[in-house]
Design a protein around this nucleic acid. Sequence first.
DNA 1: CTGTTAGCGCGTTCAC
DNA 2: GTGAACGCGCTAACAG
Lengths: 338, 338
Amino acid sequence: MKGVEPSINDVARAAGVSTATVSRALRGLPNVSAATAAKVTQVAEQLGYSASPAAVSLASGATRNIAIVCSQLNMWFTSNVCEAIVRAAQDEGFTASLLCLGKGSLHEAGAGQRRRVQAAKLRRRADAVIVVALPLLAGELAELQALNVPVVFVGPAVTGQACVHIDEYATAREATSYLLGRGHTTIAHLTGPADDDAEEGPPLLRLRGYVDALAAGGIEVDYELIAHCDYDREAARSAARDLLRTRPDTSAILGFSDVHAAGALAAAADLDLRVPADIAIVGIDGSELSEVLALTSLAQDPVLQGEAAVSLALDMLTGAPVPEQNVFPTTLIERASV
Amino acid sequence: MKGVEPSINDVARAAGVSTATVSRALRGLPNVSAATAAKVTQVAEQLGYSASPAAVSLASGATRNIAIVCSQLNMWFTSNVCEAIVRAAQDEGFTASLLCLGKGSLHEAGAGQRRRVQAAKLRRRADAVIVVALPLLAGELAELQALNVPVVFVGPAVTGQACVHIDEYATAREATSYLLGRGHTTIAHLTGPADDDAEEGPPLLRLRGYVDALAAGGIEVDYELIAHCDYDREAARSAARDLLRTRPDTSAILGFSDVHAAGALAAAADLDLRVPADIAIVGIDGSELSEVLALTSLAQDPVLQGEAAVSLALDMLTGAPVPEQNVFPTTLIERASV
DNA sequence: CTGTTAGCGCGTTCAC
DNA sequence: GTGAACGCGCTAACAG
C-alpha cells in the first residue's frame, strides 16, 4: 500500500546497524557476524526491501543486465535462442533487455535496410551483449567492441570473437551427401541471403559444404542449380519455382533453412511435382516447420546455443578465458520429404 | 579507446556552463537559450557523451524501460507481440526488458508449472509492465498492482485493467457460424488450456461463442464434441484423434488456435480422413502455420496489439485516461481446409 | 536564462 | 566485525 520503497537506510535503522553492514550482509560478504547477518536478512525481508537497481548500478558500475541484439523475434531460431538467453540470465540473477534491428513489420513504411547497431543505445546499459542471428554491417563490430563489455555472437560467426554456432560447412555437406547417398545427382541449393558484409557468413559456408559434397561425389557444380533468396517462404517459393522451371531435371533441393525448404515444397506443389517422388527436399534447422511439413532436416538446438552464450558472456565477465568458437552439433532428422 | 565515459561534468566544463544547464539543454527543456543549447549539444556530441541510465534513473525516479512479462517467446502470438513492443518502445526512447515465465524448455527438469510473477524482479526496474499472453495466477494481479506502475495486458483480458485483445467471443462465434453456413452441423471444438485462475479467459469466452453460434443455428451443444488441450500441436493431435474416434460423425473442427487446428489436421491424416472432404478444420490466429498448412483461420494482428499496448502504457504514464478494453478485429481468411 | 545546492540509494574505502 | 564518510552521475529545487 505504501508508495515508498524502503531503502537500505530503513533496513539499517530497523536492524540497528549501519548501511554498510546491511550492504555487506545482504550481499553475503564474509566480514559480517552470523548473528547480524541473520538479523539484517530478517529485517530486510520483513520490510520487503530490495536494492534499487539504479543505485546499485551507479555505485558498483555493473548493471546485472544482458543486452540481446537481434533482427526479428518472430523467427524460429531467434525466438528460441532469445528465450533461452532470457531464462538463463534470469537464473543467474541478470535481467535481459532486447533490441530488434530487423527490417521491421509490414506496417512500417520503407521496410528497407535494418537499423544499425548503435553503441549509444547499449552504453552503460548492459554488462554483456549477445548478438543473435544478425550478420554485422561494416563498423558495427568496432562499435560493439568500444562498449568494453563481453560480446557473444550466436549464429553467424565472427572471427576473433566469442561465438556460438553450428558447423555450417559440415552441416550443408552432410545434407548434400545424404541426398547423394539416396541416389540424387541433380541437387539444387536454395541458399540464403547474401550477408551484407560478412563474406564468411552461413550462406557462403553452407554453399561450400554443398559444393564440396558434390565434388566428393564426383559431381561438378552447376551454377544454374544454385538459387539465392531471403529468409522468407514466399521468396523461397518463387525462387524455387523459377529454378524448377529452368531446370526440370532437378531431383532434389537443399534449402538453406527450413523456411527455404518450405518454400521449395510449396513451389513443388505449384508445379504439380510430388514430394519425394518427383523431387526430394531437405532443410536445415529442425524447426517446428519441418515437423509440420514432414520435412527432412538437419536439426540444431537453439536453446543450447542461447544458454551457452549466456554462460560464455558471464565467464568473460569474470575475466575467465573462453573458447572463441563454440560449435554445436546438428543431427539429421529423416522425414517424408526425401 | 578511452575506457572512461565522459560525464555530464566533462560536458559542462568543456562547454563552459553548469551541469544543470547541460542537463536542461540535452533534454530540450524550454528554459535554455538557443545559443547555449546549440553549444552544449555540439560539445556533447563531440565528446560522445550520453547520460548514464543508472544516474538518470536514480535522480529522476524513472527508468525509461518497459518490462515485458510473457510465458514463452517461441509462440507465434507472443513473439510477434513482443517484437512489436520492443520496436515501439525503442521508437519512443524506451528500452524493453523481458521476463519469460513459461514452463520452460525441455532441457529443464520438471517442466511443471510456470514461474510466478515476482514483483521484486520488476520493482524499480520499469516504468510500465506489459503482460503478454499470460493468464494470471491467484495473487499475481495484486503483486503487479503493488508496483504502482501502469500495467497493460495483451491477450487474456483482465477486468478493470488496461487490456489489448480480440473479441474472443465474437471471433469463435463467427468461425462457428461460418462452418454452419457451409452446411456443417456436427461441429467439434478443440478448445484451449484451462486458464489456471482466470475463469473468463479466452478458452471459456471462445467456447461461449461456439455454443451460442450453434444455438443460433438451432443446434444443441454436444459435450462429447468438446475436447480440451494445451497449446501444443502433439497434444492437439492426440486430443483430436480421440475425439474423431469417439465421434466419427464429426464433420468439422474449430480449433482454439492455429496450433490446435494444425493438430486436428494431423489427426485427420492419422485417421485417413481427407480435409476438407471428410472433415473441415478452422483455426484462430492467422499465423504462418495457417498459411503453410492452408488452414482457414480467423486472423488477428499481434503487431498492432503490441504497438497499442506500448501506446497505452505510455499514455497511462502521463496520467492520461485510457480505455480499458482495447479490442482488435479478426478477419476470416478462407483457405483449403474448409 | 543560468548557476548552486541538495539529494536519489547504494557500494566502498577507510578508520575504529 | 562494524560504522562514518565519500562518491557514483544525474535531476530537481531554489536562487539569482
